[in-house]
């Protein structure tokens, strides 16, 4: 059984951990090491360099919320520009990017246009899935599909293959039910079952969707009602990586063959589960936003090798 943290037997030096935490504010850089997707923040510097030289990398950004201008970050457009600037300045270019939703704040045409200009301006292929903020135009999601729906099914789900990895973009922000959480729905689950039929069990799988596919904190809606059905379909695969956004902070959990990971927002932080009256934008003193975005929730455990997970099942 291969675990992602087998690759860091040498441990993470304090300096390296800090570098990674700073990097975490702009995006999460992923690479494929020995067929298993590994976040570069989990690798020692030497291994990261080797992976970059021999493998391929892709980059996840999330929750850019273009149009957000409230106290938590009056300039969400500027922090997205900064993030893209850092990505463009990487010495080793990622093969492509994924955006795990909430591209815009209010699904307005100008917000989509600004996001496309800033993100697209970097010249990478970008694979999107929508967040709930991207589907609140008058057409209930038509604005998103007009821009990003080409070649997708249903509300915008799809899959593609790159360098031997099978990528699956899922949509869990439509047809939400009273009292419920994120929702994939029967149609999408049927499509997923069919999509996976032709994929061999040894193929690494990367699933990305906006709302976490595990119960991070259901009291704040941070989970997906029918995620278990999707995960059951992924059981036979040796390596499954699930990448989400929505909660504007990094969390990671490993369960059997599945590694779950959430990315930070480029717009504003949200509080850790249960630490505030609501999951709304967290306003920090002026000047601290960027440092908090970069460092707030990533903890390298003393004596352990993996990222600390805030366990959110409160059962």
């Amino acid at each position: 059984m291969t675990h992602h943290h087998d690759n860091q037997a040498d441990g993470i030096s304090r300096r390296h951990a800090l570098e990674c935490m700073i990097w975490a504010g702009t995006g999460v850089l992923w690479t494929i090491s020995a067929g298993v997707p590994v976040s570069l923040s989990l690798l020692g510097a030497a291994q990261a360099a080797e992976a970059l030289a021999t493998g391929f990398t892709f980059l996840q950004i999330s929750d850019s919320h273009i149009g957000f201008d409230k106290a938590a970050n009056p300039h969400a457009i500027d922090t997205l520009k900064e993030a893209m600037g850092k990505i463009q300045a990487l010495p080793q270019k990622p093969a492509f990017m994924i955006h795990t939703g909430d591209i815009t704040h209010l699904s307005k045409a100008a917000q989509f246009d600004n996001a496309a200009q800033i993100i697209g301006g970097a010249g990478f292929d970008v694979h999107y899935v929508p967040g709930e903020h991207d589907l609140i135009d008058d057409g209930n999601g038509q604005a998103y599909l007009d821009r990003y729906g080409k070649g997708t099914k249903g509300a915008g789900w799809y899959s593609f293959d790159q360098n031997g990895v099978h990528f699956i973009g899922l949509v869990n922000v439509v047809n939400l039910k009273a009292g419920g959480l994120g929702n994939l729905g029967a149609d999408q689950l049927a499509w997923l079952a069919d999509d996976l039929k032709a994929v061999t069990a040894s193929t690494p799988i990367v699933v990305f969707a906006h709302i976490p596919l595990w119960a991070v904190y259901p009291e704040w809606g941070w989970g997906t009602d029918d995620a278990a059905q999707a995960l059951a379909l992924l059981k036979r695969f040796g390596s499954v990586t699930v990448l989400n956004g929505h909660i504007h902070q990094i969390m990671q959990k490993v369960e059997g063959n599945v590694t779950f990971h959430t990315a930070r927002s480029t717009a504003f932080p949200q509080p850790a589960p249960g630490t505030a009256a609501s999951p709304g934008p967290m306003t920090v003193p002026a000047g601290q936003l960027r440092s908090l975005l970069g460092t707030s929730s990533v903890t390298v455990k003393q004596g352990g090798q993996d990222l600390a997970i805030i366990d959110s099942t409160l059962a």
């Binding site: 709930e132 903020h133 939400l176 009273a178 009292g179 419920g180 959480l181 009291e219 809606g221």
Partner: peptide, 12 residues
Amino acid sequence: YAYFCGLHPHMQ
């Protein structure tokens, strides 16, 4: 009339 938030359905 029971109602909820269409974006955050845990709000009822």
